[in-house]
Design a protein around this nucleic acid. Sequence first.
RNA 1: UGUCCUAUGGUGUAAUGGUAACACAGCAGAUUUUGAUUCUGCUUUUCUAGGUUCGAAUCCUAGUAGGACAACCA
Length: 547
Amino acid sequence: MADEKSLNFIEEIIEADLAAGKYKNIATRFPPEPNGYLHLGHAKSICLNFGLSQKYGGKTNLRFDDTNPVTEETEYVENIKNDVRWLGFEWAEELYASDYFTQLYEFAAKLINKGLAYVDDSTSDEMAQQKGTPTVPGKNNKYRDRSIEENLKLFTEMKEGKHADGSKVLRAKIDMGHVNMLMRDPVIYRIKHAHHHRTGDTWCVYPMYDFAHGQSDSIENITHSICTLEFVPHRELYNWCIEKLEIYPSKQYEFARLNMTYTMMSKRKLLQLVNEKLVNGWDDPRMPTLSGIRRRGYTPESLREFCDKIGVAKRDNLIDISLLEFCVRDQLNKSALRRMVVFDPLKVVITNYEEGKSELMPSENNTEAENAGVRQMPFSRELWIERDDFNENPPKKYFRLAPGQMVRLKSGFIIKCDEAIKDSAGNVTELRCTYFPESRSGHDTSGIHVKGVIHWVSAQHAVPAEIRLYERLFVTEDMNAIEDDFKNHLNPNSLQVLSKVYAEPELLNAKLGEHYQFLRMGYFVLDPDSSKGKLMFNRTVTLRDSK
RNA sequence: UGUCCUAUGGUGUAAUGGUAACACAGCAGAUUUUGAUUCUGCUUUUCUAGGUUCGAAUCCUAGUAGGACAACCA
């Protein structure tokens, strides 16, 4: 029963809280801003927040942090919900910071009434000027001394649309000399005459993050509000607001966000890739977005396993992308259906096999999974094999086909290469081989032992398909460390399209969402753009290659 | 020349004052009708200097290094 796995620092806090009787149940939230698509970094946060409430009993809300109407859209909301569900989690309540706009407005008025907020007419430049620097304290300005009555009047006018964007803001009155820059009278409300994706034109003043997030947590009685390290300095302000507003004391905890080698996780830059058409949309299989990675063929199980393996801590990290690949291979190895597809075809003619004859060879769908069964592969005199599986001048440890050398056709027969036919340019165009009838797979009485086993497809039964081979989007290991334009680091070979490969006919029945291992080539999924007449497969990940 | 956070193999994460471990990666070898999988073995670790202690990765002090903070973004 005892879980031997050690706890991460947040679990330790929760267990201590629970042991102290501080809470009966915990409540967390996943708070995306609907201004982009979810990526792997969000997956870490989702698994953490939802995982915690599952483990300790409690709930997790999905709350959209939609306080900035100019960047946020409903399209993003729908995709975010879809991604969270795909990852395997269901939220207790679907909520929006905008649900609380009225309450937040009243909170602001309460602060004014307590003499803890004021309307400032300064321009943003002036405010920046007055704010000082991390080593130089800021200065009070004349607006700071406005009376409560005047502040109330002006704030009401702001709400009523009597003032232009940028002409006034509401600021918390804290301490312009505070060591924490965020405590130097932070802006808590600004004027934006903008259409909001949910509240429409009801509001023209919108709360800032620091005056919405903690309050939303509090309204929802969130016990553990978990965010990333860059919010550490915000915690002081988070607590200040809760204290002065005298509302439910949610607590904020910070963990280090996920960074991965050869991957860029910035939403802003991902948006740029999409807008500048450097990728084919948010769900391009090269993107680290959940929708991209899903289209690539990654499974939610493997992502959850990955998030579990990377752990949760407070130090900056750079996770090797090979760990992600390991997780998906590990899962797909157990579940993916095996199929044979020849990418770079070379014709093989079996000279001692009867012309016009064909027979069905059973082949296992997956030896790693019980009851996966077999499918039938037609075998005939003319086959396609991988051009790479023949070598005219084989090196020492080459186990495949070479003049005079034998190889096993997986689930078929052992063949021997008698002759390589070449065109006038000297390119090998065809192999003449003989087969050993008594070497039939599963009934081999030939006594011949070969080390090499290759995949193949019967030429007359082969089905054409398109294959998309993906590699990492960037060539630079640590994309956070670069100083120049990130576009200089794009991998020019991140997508390679093989427009005509030969697939075994069983693949005519390929279904969306079903995962395949193309023997010796990697894991693949059908692309949603596929049609009956045109099969298209995306490579999820290669097989491990120790050749 | 401020405040805060962090520091354990190549990369991550454990060890909660008592033998530094696990995973990935890498390197060997065995098995294999996928050069996959599986199995076995190996390489490589506590930032530095003091202090507390019988005993320190762990506690204290100082230093060093990395990161965060000066948006009407979140």
